[in-house]
């Protein structure tokens, strides 16, 4: 039941893009085309889940026992940066086709705040389950990370679909490009507000 609550909450209610505002830069940057949006979502999904696993373990078995929690930010960003590099190298070796699809997005992911944001959230925030709240254990943290990145993908792909249509429309000059995109996202966010209170 807790897993179900985590998944619904992460994908719809607290959607990482539309409610938490994490990872907005790539969201606006690569959502021009449906195909690139899908590729980016896939890469983000992969990296967020992997990064959460590593940083959760790092935090629980190294930083907390040594009372070095104040180094969280610096340790996490280094882990994420090197992880992205490793993923890039490994992917290139073992699956060139996947690398072709995701590869170009990987360097962009280091500075995607969604990755660091999720990593910090799972080790610092208490999650609410009905009338109780507690920190997530490792399986829950992984489910949360995966569900969050699915939420990222859902919002990104929906938005890319809308934006492809927007490109063909005539909009006033001052609205061209980002402004009209932002107003569209705003309407999407309103729709997602409808999910609040579900969990």
């Amino acid at each position: 039941m807790e897993y179900f609550a985590i998944i619904i909450s992460a994908i719809f209610v607290n959607n990482i893009l539309l409610a938490q505002f994490l990872g907005i830069c790539p969201f606006l940057g690569v959502s021009n085309k449906l195909s690139t949006a899908t590729g980016m979502s896939g890469a983000v999904c992969f990296v967020i889940t992997l990064a959460t696993l590593v940083t959760y373990l790092l935090n629980a078995y190294l930083l907390v026992p040594l009372k070095l929690e104040f180094l969280q930010t610096i340790a996490f960003i280094l882990v994420i940066a090197s992880l992205v590099q490793i993923v890039e190298i490994v992917l290139k070796k073992i699956s060139p086709s996947l690398y072709q699809a995701l590869g170009i997005f990987l360097p962009l992911i280091t500075t995607n705040c969604a990755v660091l944001g999720v990593a910090i959230t799972v080790v610092t925030k208490e999650f609410t389950f009905g009338a109780e709240s507690h920190m997530l254990d490792l399986p829950q943290a992984l489910v949360y990370a995966l569900a969050t990145s699915i939420g990222y993908g859902v919002a990104m792909i929906l938005f890319a679909g809308l934006r492809e249509h927007l490109a063909g429309n005539e909009v006033p000059k001052a609205f061209k490009g980002l402004p009209i995109a932002l107003i569209t996202v705003s309407i999407m966010a309103m729709a997602f507000l409808g999910f609040s209170g579900m969990v």
Binding site: F21, A174, L178, P179, L182, V185, S186, A189, M190, L193
Partner: peptide, 21 residues
């Protein structure tokens, strides 16, 4: 709604329009 998520996108979008113009 302006304090919540949709308002953030909306206000930024319209301010950008004003800035551009």
């Amino acid at each position: 709604a302006f304090v919540m998520a949709p308002g953030a996108f909306l206000v930024l979008g319209y301010l950008m329009v004003i800035f551009n113009k």
